[in-house]
Design a binder for these strands. Structure first.
Length: 648
RNA sequence: GCUCAUAUAGCUCAGUCGGUAGAGCACUUGCUUGGUAAGUAAGAGGUCACCGGUUCAAGUCCGGUUAUGAGCUCCA
């Protein structure tokens, strides 16, 4: 049979030759590095026979695929075997690879804590030291079930039973150990290829990922080809931890949380300054893009939420208020608004709208409350009270495409100014739990996809992830250390306007139902500020920095000049503070640097005599001297410039 | 909501075998007036998250509650 290699060359091998035979045929070095093969596009073990003419490429340990296979073998073979050695009654579930590593889920009789990880790692190293060969057998369904029944591996049996496969269940086994595991493979040919690894954490995870199922123990780990790569990864994790907005928020005195209001932010003066600056920035952009700002009530009678459909779907997650009125016939139940859209429709419904009024774009910095499950809260990123840069576009079906284009343009300019140069687009389609007929959903999905296709933006489809009222586009930005954040959203809604009786008079003089588009660019201010803090590692661009300038004196003789400079800057609305404390200049510089003040002005006798200022910028240890008149103007201008973020 | 863990000074943390709490930084005061990431000395600061139990005695052991953390589930 003929084997075609990736470079197009063809080798002739006996029928039934394996990937290893092929590697050996090409060269001994390759055979040594080979860990698996790709035959006609699918990965196979090195020991699998190839029966017909095929296109084959060899996966070596140093490739990305090789690393992935190594991680897979490390979890499904080594970690699982170590667990069975240490906890013989443990029951194995699944052990896949994930980004940068792997995990394994299993059930144990005794709880495993992170203190046990070193012990498990040791056992793994012992197993790896054996250098065992990894063998594979193909089994019928019956035999496979029998094999795992004798081991009391009920999760494996469940997996086999639910498989559509008739036979060829792959069971892997190492050397002469009696550990076996079911796996779709491929695996390393032997344990010798395992590189550097570390078990990182232990946590709970539901069997099959369903919250109604029992909780299994999950052990996470990371694995790399060598110690250097492992160290680099661990270093990356440490760097990410240093950027944690909860830690920086404390250090920079931005906000706090407390028990009496879980998931709700107490903004301190510094944090609230960032919030206000960001909001003013967005407000200006909204006006530039044809939106009108409105405001709607916080507390609204349940009747409106019933009409909108929210009461039905999300009542569990709404904060409810009851007022005890002694003589009222009926207790009135209100909800704190979890969304702004029903309120916006109420404003739309005031007065008769004509097609000439469309598209009508309402914007609101809408404060919403949602009773998020206790385990989901996370700093500013997931809270129970938040403010969206919300907006609703009321338009005709014909206007969807142009509105989509205008929105994406708007969003990308906002992201660029905030320092995020690129974003991905995701199209989410109808979910299981939804309102509206399939006919309407067909129309909505088609409209959105057509719009984005015609505009030529690349996008991915996320089946079933749409909102309950319509399909949506989500915008995912990438931060300075490569993490993804879903922020912007653009959601078509062919349902709510009809439910809440919104109409317009068309050219034909008849009444029509407008399309409603829910849209946000930042998402929530709370979360977006968290993202900004982490993206900039606290070193916010000047216009967003709570304290933009600190003027530090060297000796008390210059205090009058310090105050003079400060009042000049204040007059130009620069957020400036003076530091005339009786401390050494290095002490002051250190303190203001650690609290992330972007501009430190240092003033001593020399500056006062020459009417200059020495400036030290955050992240640099150079000082530059400027004449007073020039620099005050320049800093004032720079401090208001929300475009063209300087590179970090 | 689920699993596991954690909760001690403003912050970061120590506190052994159950015997009435300790460090560094920050804060206040004194000395120090100095040239770009920590000058120096002293002082003040705590109902050990909350409720209950065991015990002669609980920061420490046990139970519950609340909050937080990691992950899972969820996220209009």
């Amino acid at each position: 049979m003929n084997i075609t290699l990736p470079d197009g060359s063809i080798r002739e091998l006996a029928q039934g030759s394996t990937g290893l035979d092929l590697a050996n045929d090409i060269g001994p070095g390759l055979a040594k590095a080979a860990v698996a093969v790709v035959v006609n596009g699918s990965q196979m073990d090195l020991c699998d026979p190839i029966e017909t003419d095929s296109e084959v490429s060899i996966i070596t340990i140093n490739s990305n695929d090789g690393l992935e296979i190594m991680r897979h073998t490390l979890t499904a073979q080594v970690l699982a075997r170590a667990i069975k050695n240490l906890y013989p009654t443990a029951k194995l579930a699944i052990g896949p690879t994930i980004e940068d590593g792997f995990y394994y889920d299993f059930a144990t009789e005794t709880a495993i804590s992170s203190d046990d990880l070193p012990k498990i790692e040791n056992e793994m190293r012992n197993i790896i030291a054996s250098g065992d060969l990894i063998n594979k057998s193909l089994n019928t369904k019956k035999d496979a079930i029998k094999a795992f029944k004798s081991k009391k591996e009920e999760y494996k049996i469940a997996i086999i039973n639910e498989s559509e496969q008739a036979d060829d269940f792959q069971i892997y086994q190492q050397g002469d150990s009696d550990f076996i595991d079911l796996c779709r493979g491929p695996h390393l040919p032997s344990l010798e290829h395992i590189g550097a690894f570390k078990l990182t954490k232990v946590a709970g995870a539901y069997w099959r990922g369903k919250s109604e199922n029992e909780m299994l123990t999950r052990i996470y780990g990371t694995a790399w080809n060598n110690d250097k790569d492992l160290a680099a990864y661990l270093n990356r994790m440490e760097e990410a931890e240093k950027r944690d907005h909860r830690k920086l928020g404390k250090e920079m005195d931005l906000f706090h949380f407390q028990d009496e209001a879980p998931g709700m932010v107490f903004w301190h003066p510094n944090g609230w300054t960032i919030y206000r600056e960001l909001q003013n920035f967005v407000r200006k952009r909204l006006v530039d893009n044809g939106y009108v700002e409105i405001n709607t009530p916080q507390v609204i009678d349940r009747k409106l939420w019933e009409a909108s459909g929210h009461w039905d779907k999300y009542r569990e997650n709404m904060f409810i208020t009851e007022i005890d009125e002694e003589h009222a016939n009926e207790k009135r139940i209100n909800a704190l608004k979890p969304m702004n859209c029903p309120g916006h429709v109420q404003i739309y419904n005031q007065g008769i709208k004509s097609y000439r009024d469309l598209p009508l774009k309402f914007a609101e910095f809408g404060s919403c409350h949602r009773y998020e499950p206790s385990g989901t809260m996370h700093g500013l990123m997931r809270v129970r009270a938040f403010t969206q840069d919300d907006g609703h576009i009321f338009c005709t079906e014909d206007q969807i495409e142009s509105e989509t284009g205008l929105f994406i343009k708007f969003l990308s300019s906002v992201y660029a100014d905030l320092g995020f140069k690129s974003f991905d687009i995701k199209l989410s389609t109808r979910p299981q739990m939804r309102v509206g007929s399939d006919e309407i959903w067909d129309k909505a999905e088609l409209a959105l996809e057509t719009a984005i296709k015609n505009l030529g933006y690349p996008y991915k489809i996320d089946e079933g992830d749409g909102a309950f009222y319509g399909p949506k586009l989500d915008f995912v930005l990438t931060d300075a250390i490569g993490r993804d954040w879903q922020c912007g959203t653009f959601q078509l809604d062919f349902n709510l306007a009809e439910r809440l009786d919104a109409e317009y008079v068309g050219e034909d003089g008849k009444k029509h139902i407008p399309v409603m588009i829910h849209r946000a660019i930042l998402g929530s201010f709370e979360r977006f500020i968290g993202i900004l803090i982490e993206n900039y590692a606290g070193k916010l661009p000047l216009w967003l920095a709570p304290r933009q300038v600190v003027i530090a004196s060297i000796t008390s003789d210059v205090n009058s000049y310090v105050n003079e400079v400060a009042s000049l800057l204040k007059e130009l609305n620069v957020r400036v503070e003076t530091d005339t404390r009786n401390e050494k200049i290095s002490y002051k510089v250190r303190e203001h640097s650690t609290s992330k003040v972007p501009v430190i002005m240092v003033i001593g006798k020399k500056e006062m005599e020459e009417r200059t200022i020495s400036i030290r910028r955050l992240g640099s240890n150079e000082n530059t001297s400027y004449s007073l008149n020039d620099i005050v103007e320049q800093i004032a201008q720079e401090s208001k410039d929300s475009s063209n973020i300087q590179e970090l």
